[in-house]
Write a protein that binds this DNA or RNA. Structure first.
Length: 414
RNA sequence: GUGGGCGUAGCUCAGCAGGUUAGAGCACCUGGUUGUGGCCCAGGAGGCCGUGGGUUCAAGUCCCAUCGCUCACCCCA
């Protein structure tokens, strides 16, 4: 094969694009009903936008970005996530001054250079929502409710919500130090990567899957002990609101989101039947991000959800039959122009109309009409042209009637 | 970056301990109906058996290398 897609990238073929469109339409619909508006940002950005917000020591920034030097000197990067670009746009266009709460959602491709596996690609798609301006638990609950609503409207089964709070900025600082104090004496029992993280980002040790290290975690200090009173109250309010909304969740004090900018509430939606990569949605509060990127201090909360993973976890529902598809068969050479005109008349009435462009036999064209799921066929042959009539065949019943050419629009308009 | 599994027709896969023109199902095309689909029947087209090298009288089959896909680790959506 001469050319094929780059490792970790995939074509979305015509036979699959309908499912994508359905997914997208539910996302648009639910987001808009919650009062969110779509934002579209460029596919690539200044590299430092990501390194500064996501964190130098994260896997994304340290080894997964597609980065190159621009001819004019700067360093550019294909976006590996979308919260930072949206925050950048929020600051750049001073959106905070247009209304006290900015609610936005987005949809599009992202790029991370990882080893592909089930549920992981190098180009993949996420949708997400972000709300800037409110620090209150209602905002947290609203964001989570949007996710919950979308997943249930998609008919997703077997998904669950995990919840944690990382506390506010200062609390994280104390907790970090406490973790370092705890792990430093045990340093030689830690893996090489964990030892590095002990220096740079000890929180990341918490989500290790190494059984040896998990044993050590049992005695480690818990984040909950470092929450400020406000942190604890905020988190407890979020939980209360979720309960009021009948959104089930479970607490997971071990859940540390991979990106540096998270504060307070963090959450993940997990799906069964996805294999090792089971998170379909992840998000949380990031009250410090806007300021880090040079904007006014602005509380914010959002999530991102993986569209491929969502589609994978949805049951493959069978092909829907097009309810209004028509197939036009013309067998007369001199009537080709006329056939095209008739085709357009039917299309103007709102029908999907397909025509053969291979000059095939009647039989072949009928077979084709059947294959694409056409409901009706219009047949133009020598007799019909001579008599100024048309045959209309109903493929669902097999019945066929002859109508006057002049009655065509009337026939389909009903 | 590390490890496991797999590369045969468009798709899903057979191919016995190496042996002659490489198979099936589905899909596609034609005919059975001088102008009538689906079902059925008959026929047809479509393969450098991933690539390169080696062993052998003989390689889809064995060995080595390489490329690709896939699953998992790390981490994430």
């Amino acid at each position: 094969m001469a050319f094929q897609t780059i490792k970790g990238t995939h074509d979305i073929l015509p036979e699959d694009s309908t499912r994508w469109q359905e997914l997208e339409s539910i996302i648009h619909d639910v987001a808009v009903r919650f009062g969110y508006s779509e934002i579209r940002t460029p596919i690539f950005e200044d590299t430092s936008l990501f390194s500064r917000s996501v964190g130098e020591d994260t896997d994304i920034v340290s080894k997964e970005m597609y980065t190159w030097d621009d001819r004019s000197g700067g360093s550019l990067t294909l976006r590996p996530e979308l919260t930072a670009p949206v925050a950048r746009a929020f600051i750049q266009h001073n959106l905070g001054s247009k209304s006290p709460v900015q609610r936005m959602y987005y949809l599009g491709p992202l790029f991370r250079r990882e080893r592909p596996q089930k549920g992981r690609q190098r180009q993949f798609h996420q949708f997400g929502i972000e709300a800037f301006g409110s620090e209150y638990p209602e905002q947290d609950a609203e964001i989570i409710a949007v996710g919950q609503t979308i997943f249930s409207e998609l008919g997703l089964k077997d998904f669950s919500l995990k919840l944690n709070s990382l506390g506010s900025g200062e609390c994280r600082g104390h907790y970090k130090k406490a973790l370092q104090d705890y792990f430093n004496p045990l340093k030689n029992q830690l893996s090489e990567t964990s030892q590095k993280r002990l220096e740079t980002n000890p929180l990341r040790i918490l989500d290790t899957k190494n059984p040896e290290e998990q044993k050590l975690l049992a005695g480690a200090p818990s984040i909950a002990d470092f929450w400020t009173r406000d942190d604890a109250e905020h988190f407890s309010n979020v939980q209360d609101l979720l309960s009021v909304l009948d959104i089930p969740f479970e607490l997971d004090p071990q859940m540390v989101r991979g990106l540096d900018y998270y504060t307070r509430t963090t959450f993940e939606f997990i799906s069964g039947n996805l294999g090792a990569q089971d998170a379909i949605c992840g998000g949380g509060r990031y009250d410090g991000l806007v300021e880090i990127l040079g904007g006014k201090p602005t509380p914010a909360m959002g999530f991102a959800a993986g569209m491929e993973r969502i589609l994978m976890s949805m049951e493959q529902n069978g092909k829907k039959i097009e309810g209004n598809s028509v197939y036009l068969i013309n067998l007369v050479e001199s009537a080709r122009g006329k056939a095209l005109q008739i085709a357009n008349e039917i299309r103007e009435l709102g029908f999907t109309l397909t025509m053969d462009t291979l000059r095939r036999s009647l039989k072949a064209q009928l077979r084709d009409a059947n294959r694409i799921g056409a409901v009706k066929v219009i047949i133009m042959g020598d007799d019909e042209i001579k008599n100024q009539t048309l045959q209309i065949k109903d493929l669902t019943t097999g019945e066929q009637e002859e109508i006057a050419e002049s009655d065509l629009v009337k026939h389909f308009a009903v």
